[in-house]
Write a protein that binds this DNA or RNA. Structure first.
Lengths: 198, 198, 198, 198
DNA sequence: TATGAATGAGTCTTCATTCAT
DNA sequence: AATGAATGAAGACTCATTCAT
């Protein structure tokens, strides 16, 4: 019984923690199955808790989503660090970062939508997450540009939006195996031939 | 549709035709105002017909949307023809076509979504519309490529998807005035510097 | 209760009017039982219709209440006419009118509350009803005043509010048989002795 | 849970006392702001305690309200005493007492409602409070009546209810500046002209 | 005793679609 | 053909109260 009674540093109750992460597990599965537009009540039901419990932990869908992404965020951040360490040059780094970002956005079907919405009204907990990665993207873009690998005038924010957009449209192109890489290439080099601007 | 005639006076149902086009008018205004996610009931109400009538003419939202776009399609087609006539070269033509396509997709707030969905399951009446324009886009792309203005390997379908994607993400970027042109440029030339691939 | 429901499973589609009045019947009983704060869903359930059907007929609680009162309104109006015809003088008329008003307000337990609320924000369908009766009350008050039976300076609106208020407290005084008439008398003559103001 | 009645003099813990009065402070502010229908959870939160703690001190909303009024009761009682000391005659005293009572009831928006309810079912802690003031009111009324200032047959209870009622309806009449005094006058002298009963 | 997590029935509301009239 | 009433599942979210910690 290492539990000291009294009011020392309040730690979250064990059962609450358990519940929270259980809800997250269930939500992950549910969202993976039904896309992120599924019913929150259904998630609560499947998790075996009342809707109030879910709402206590996550006051709205975005909060739940943000919590769900948090785990992946850590992964994304570590991937960023790895890229910093391993990439031969800034251009390759940017490329790999965008790939990482693309994977992150593809975590759940329909995820691009709330991310876009969050970018619109900054009050969402998702907005913070996004802004962080926008900044990171901008850093990568800048470095690549300094190196001559990225086109001048391209902003990190736009590239981020581009990744988001491509991830969104990819949802439609699943039957077409060539589409995903084609879309990445499109974002990378555009449709115009280089000669066009020389 | 086998027209069943009863008593004499077998008219081609002028009133039904009138109804149909009236519904379309109303729907156009409604979608322009509220985005394409508005309630179909509300449209029927505003058009002064019962929901059943609306449903008879357009069995679901996509059908309505498709019919709505058909009118614009004519415009888009004529724009295509004008481009063919006026454009100095195939590259400029493609550029202008994509601009036209962008305008077309931006007709209603939220339109990219059902278009994307239609591309997924081809059963939607919107799918046909899209496929037509994909073909057209491909024609433009091919011509530009033959001319050296478009990058080899770029498919019309991908470019179409790219336009769709950019139109979609644009919804989020409204506060940012630089974003729309930046996104167009991104799609045109990508983020990578030309030197990168020379 | 010989509940006239159709064969189990398939509910025979009733005429809209009949459905409407059936809902009203049920609502009347339900409100009489549980007071006017009861659940609308419960009423729909009890009426054997979906909540949507109830909402189609009565978009909100006030609308339902207003419809419920409409029948009684007719009665109140005819009572008003009878009073006009029968009352010996304007003072007796006012007296009888207030009695009628009191009966009207006592139709459902808790009715004074939404009436008061409606008086606050005039958008409610109940507001119209109330305003009409306020006007009528004012007419009666004026006539009585001209005759010397009502105190100068008393406005119809205040008297109406007084009736509402007394009906409201009456809910508390049920155990006390003397209270209702005492409250009426209080409203009529006040607590102060006439000598006090001579 | 065995009730430990043996050794008496078990004082409440100091921190419990502190908690209790802090909750009261917070509740006072909250009710003053949001009316008495606000969420108890919100009060607990604002007070920095758990809802369980609030519940332990005040098993329900009425108990909290009663405790809250107790503080004001002292003030009301002292006002009563001051009236006794200062009033020139019993009629003026009654008048001033009713004014005091009106202020008391107006302490919180929506307060009349639970008071009325408490009068109905005497089990509420508010009932006691009310009964005390009803008695006081009756004393004032009697004294005034003996002096010829109050109408014979008027009972303290009824006058109390009248004050409650007028306070209740006043909530609706706020837009109308003339209403509050008009309602007071109505309660004082009624709508009938004195001549009517001479 | 204090805490605050959990409960879960309950609130109102919407809407695509069906089907009796 | 047209109508529009009916459906009823589903949605998000609340909150007084209980109970495990």
């Amino acid at each position: 019984m290492p539990e000291r009674t009294g009011p020392p540093g309040r730690r979250p109750r064990a059962d609450a923690q358990r519940n929270r992460s259980h809800i997250l597990d269930v939500a992950e599965g549910y969202f993976a199955e039904h896309g992120i537009a599924g019913s929150l009540d259904a998630i609560a039901r499947r998790a075996g808790v009342g809707p109030g419990t879910l709402y206590r932990h996550f006051p709205n869908r975005d909060a739940l989503l943000a919590a769900l992404l948090e785990a992946r965020n850590a992964e994304l951040v570590s991937r960023r660090d790895r890229i910093h360490d391993e990439a031969a040059d800034a251009t390759e780094a940017l490329e790999r970062w965008l790939e990482a970002l693309g994977d992150w956005v593809a975590a759940f079907d329909g995820l691009p939508e709330p991310l876009r919405a969050a970018l619109r009204e900054e009050s969402s907990p998702l907005a913070l997450t996004c802004e962080g990665f926008i900044t990171t993207t901008d850093d990568f873009v800048r470095a690549a540009r300094d190196e001559g690998g990225a086109r001048p005038g391209v902003r990190g924010r736009d590239v981020f939006l581009g990744v988001l957009a491509m991830a969104w449209v990819r949802g439609a192109a699943m039957a077409d195996d060539q589409a995903p890489p084609a879309l990445d290439a499109l974002l990378r080099t555009g449709w115009a031939a280089p000669a066009d601007e020389a």
